[in-house]
């Protein structure tokens, strides 16, 4: 069986513009601890399992999400013969965490195929340069403004986005900042910083009061947490870091 990557991208292409489809692919592979940007032969079922957890970042509507997963699942060799999809066992990776999944409901790209029509509902900025940090910050402010956050809260949110994007730039050099709108439990904004760098060996240490990093003023994540309602970090040595910060409209 050939490399299923193109088939998956094609299927995702029914739901997202190409750039976003690739981002979904990438982030799903990353979550599954797969290096590179391709799905290896025989790993498609693992990919589908991961996808179910990645997808809430991108598609709000559970029905539509299920449809998308189903579409990918039909690419599995076993599914081609036997329709009833059994729930796939999840890979062992999932330890208790607060994933973006349950909280974040609304993603930015649902509904507009060109992916650029409405910046106010969210988006993804790839972080590789200082200019990208500025873009991420602008995007977060734009979304916050559309959500009618106060000017002060807009500033806090934009600053938090800048802080998270800068962490990616300074410590990893490549990653993504995803800004989306959440509806549950209330309307709000969610900023997810995702990278596949070395990870934070000791999250508690970083969040502790005396901590100073080599570049910042020792305030990065702690400071960010104070600006937002909630900040969750998932990090493991070697597999990268996901920081999800949320602020609800008060």
């Amino acid at each position: 069986m050939p490399d299923p990557t193109e088939d998956v991208l094609g299927a995702l292409g029914d739901y997202f513009p190409p750039a976003i489809a690739r981002a979904v692919l990438r982030s799903t592979l990353r979550r599954g601890e797969v290096a590179g940007e391709r799905i290896q032969e025989g790993e498609l079922s693992d990919f589908v399992a991961e996808l179910e957890r990645t997808l809430p970042m991108y598609i709000v509507d559970p029905a539509r999400r299920g449809e998308c997963v189903g579409r990918i699942r039909r690419l599995l060799p076993s599914e081609r013969r036997e329709p009833p999809p059994s729930p796939r066992p999840r890979p062992p990776r999932d330890t208790p965490r607060a994933p973006p999944a349950p909280l974040n409901a609304v993603a930015g790209f649902e509904g507009h195929a060109n992916g650029s029509s409405d910046r106010g509902s969210g988006g993804i900025v790839r972080i590789r340069t200082a200019r990208d940090v500025v873009d991420a910050c602008d995007l977060a402010r734009e979304v916050a403004r559309k959500l009618s956050f106060s000017l002060l809260d807009q500033t806090k949110i934009a600053t938090a986005a800048s802080e998270l994007a800068r962490n990616i730039l300074l410590y990893v050099g490549d990653g993504e900042l995803r800004v989306s709108v959440v509806e549950v439990p209330k309307r709000g904004i969610q900023i997810a910083a995702v990278d596949s760098g070395a990870g934070i060996p000791d999250v508690n240490l970083v969040m502790n009061n005396g901590y100073r990093s080599r570049t910042g003023m020792g305030m990065g994540l702690k400071g960010t947490k104070r600006l937002m309602d909630d900040l969750a970090i998932e990090s493991r040595a070697g597999t990268g870091t996901t920081v999800v910060a949320t602020k609800l409209v008060s």
């Binding site: 000017l151 002060l152 500033t155 600053t159 003023m217 305030m219 400071g223 104070r226 600006l227």
Partner: peptide
């Protein structure tokens, strides 16, 4: 320094 920026800095402990 804008008020919102000043408040944000203080909040962050900067």
């Amino acid at each position: 320094l804008r008020p919102a920026v000043a408040i944000t800095l203080v909040e962050m402990g900067l």
